[in-house]
Simulated assay, not measured.
Amino acid sequence: MQAILVYCGANPGTKPIYKETAEELGKILAINNIRLIYGGGSVGLMGIIADSVLANNGQVTGIIPHFLDRMEVGHKNLPDMHKVETMHERKALMEKLCDGIITLPGGYGSMDELFEILSWSQLGLHQKPVGLLNLNGFYDHLLKQLDVMVEEGFLKAENRNLVLVSDNIEDLLKKMEAFSPSFHEKWLKRDQI
């Protein structure tokens, strides 16, 4: 993977592990020459990971809607910043520029992005690995809800398995590298019948 899209909070969270892990992920991306693609913000975990990549001589691409940039949340030190009109344009461009996706802890925005990218994966609109970094058990309840969706017949097990989960950065990256989009091949063949 040459570019990873990271969804994360515009807040830093209440526990040091969130900030520390965002910094560590930024460092790992930079050291491995993997470009960070993200929402272009300067606040919360978004700003922390971007600053970490830059501090470690890595490459960062930010994508931010004009209205958010005008609210002074846009990162001012990015050499590669794309300004778009809408949130929809932002999400589409971020997906286009990446080879894989990681979601750190976050709020409504991160959940919106995670579930939209999973929906796109389920529909075969992309074949990229989608990783969830489950720090401090942050996503335990969400993962249980996904299991309930399978049990209750609203989510197929193969689609549930599109979410790659770990509480460790290196382990998650290994899972993403090993990801095989075999499900998509079945979907596309079925579509051609």
Score class of each variant (00 low, 15 high):
residue 131 G to W: 03
residue 158 E to F: 09
residue 61 T to W: 04
residue 116 E to G: 00
residue 152 E to D: 13
residue 50 A to G: 03
residue 147 D to F: 12
residue 33 N to Y: 11
residue 18 Y to M: 05
residue 75 H to P: 07
residue 60 V to Y: 01
residue 143 L to K: 12
residue 47 G to D: 02
residue 101 I to E: 00
residue 168 N to S: 13
residue 161 N to W: 08
residue 191 D to M: 14
residue 151 E to P: 00
residue 144 K to D: 11
residue 1 M to C: 13
residue 21 T to P: 00
residue 13 G to I: 08
residue 184 H to E: 13
residue 122 Q to K: 15
residue 151 E to S: 10
residue 169 I to M: 00
residue 121 S to Y: 01
residue 135 L to V: 13
residue 54 L to T: 13
residue 6 V to G: 03
residue 86 T to I: 02
residue 155 L to C: 14
residue 122 Q to R: 14
residue 15 K to P: 06
residue 35 R to K: 15
residue 137 G to E: 08
residue 161 N to S: 15
residue 166 S to G: 11
residue 136 N to P: 01
residue 68 L to Q: 06
residue 87 M to H: 00
residue 148 V to E: 13
residue 95 E to W: 07
residue 95 E to T: 14
residue 61 T to A: 06
residue 173 L to K: 08
residue 94 M to V: 09
residue 193 I to C: 02
residue 80 D to S: 13
residue 39 G to S: 05
residue 47 G to F: 02
residue 161 N to P: 10
residue 5 L to I: 02
residue 74 G to D: 04
residue 140 D to T: 13
residue 189 K to S: 10
residue 110 S to Y: 03
residue 77 N to M: 09
residue 128 K to S: 00
residue 65 P to L: 10
residue 54 L to V: 14
residue 116 E to C: 04
residue 10 A to F: 01
residue 52 S to G: 01
residue 117 I to Q: 09
residue 77 N to H: 08
residue 46 M to W: 04
residue 28 I to Q: 13
residue 80 D to T: 13
residue 173 L to R: 03
residue 157 A to Q: 15
residue 144 K to C: 06
residue 4 I to T: 08
residue 67 F to Q: 12
residue 166 S to D: 15
residue 47 G to C: 02
residue 3 A to W: 07
residue 126 H to P: 08
residue 140 D to Q: 12
residue 117 I to E: 04
residue 160 R to E: 11
residue 143 L to Q: 12
residue 100 G to F: 06
residue 61 T to D: 04
residue 142 L to M: 15
residue 170 E to K: 10
residue 193 I to M: 03
residue 131 G to K: 01
residue 81 M to R: 05
residue 16 P to K: 01
residue 61 T to R: 03
residue 2 Q to T: 14
residue 7 Y to P: 04
residue 112 D to E: 15
residue 99 D to E: 13
residue 29 L to R: 06
residue 161 N to M: 13
residue 18 Y to N: 03
residue 166 S to K: 11
residue 188 L to D: 12
residue 142 L to Q: 10
residue 136 N to H: 10
residue 125 L to F: 12
residue 9 G to W: 00
residue 32 N to A: 11
residue 63 I to V: 14
residue 34 I to L: 10
